[in-house]
């Protein structure tokens, strides 16, 4: 599932990736949460020390080390997830590939796309990124591409909407 994924022998497929800023954004998110957790542990222990309550420094250090380790592992996994995300605009359909543990490849014909969402949360907006989500009439179609540069997201949305309208097939 990790190769270039040519599902049709004739065409040479061009797989595009989300912007490299997505990797940075994920790293910031993971380390942000890890830092917050460590800060909480430190604060609790500091308050305990100041108040004179019995504080077990050994468990505090162990906890901090554990949180930091978990943070590193999650960061590794998040980076792998980012690099596994790719999409390919073919002639009649869109291929989206994602996932590390569970790898998924979605094929969505342009004529089946009902509408396309471009969503950007606050962290994504800070990095000038956006997520494009494709919807079909089936609730279980789950194709989305996070971390696209906003210009690329707009281009993809317009392109898909135009192709979708041109080839719309009835329900």
């Amino acid at each position: 599932m990790r190769d270039t994924g040519t599902t049709s022998a004739e065409q040479e497929e061009v797989w595009l990736r989300p912007s490299p800023r997505l990797g940075i954004m994920r790293r910031v998110e993971v380390f942000g949460v890890t830092g917050l957790a460590v800060a909480i542990v430190l604060m609790v222990n500091a308050v305990g020390l100041l108040a004179g309550a019995p504080v077990n420094l050994g468990t505090a250090v162990l906890l901090i080390v554990g949180i930091a380790l978990a943070g590193f592992l999650i960061d590794r996994w998040a980076q792998r997830r980012v690099s596994a995300w790719a999409y390919c605009e073919r002639e009649d359909d869109l291929l989206v590939r994602r996932g590390v543990l569970v790898s998924r490849l979605s094929v969505i014909p342009y004529g089946r796309m009902q509408f396309i969402d471009v969503v950007a949360g606050p962290i994504e907006r800070a990095f000038s990124l956006a997520t494009v989500r494709m919807h079909t009439a089936a609730a279980s179609s789950d194709a989305r591409i996070p971390g696209l540069a906003q210009t690329e997201a707009a281009r993809l949305r317009d392109h898909l909407a135009q192709l979708g309208e041109a080839r719309a097939a009835g329900l």
Partner: peptide, 13 residues
């Protein structure tokens, strides 16, 4: 058919 998905979980891999 609206869309097709090929899914491979870790056990399947």
């Amino acid at each position: 058919v609206q869309s097709l998905r090929l899914v491979q979980g870790p056990a399947q891999r």
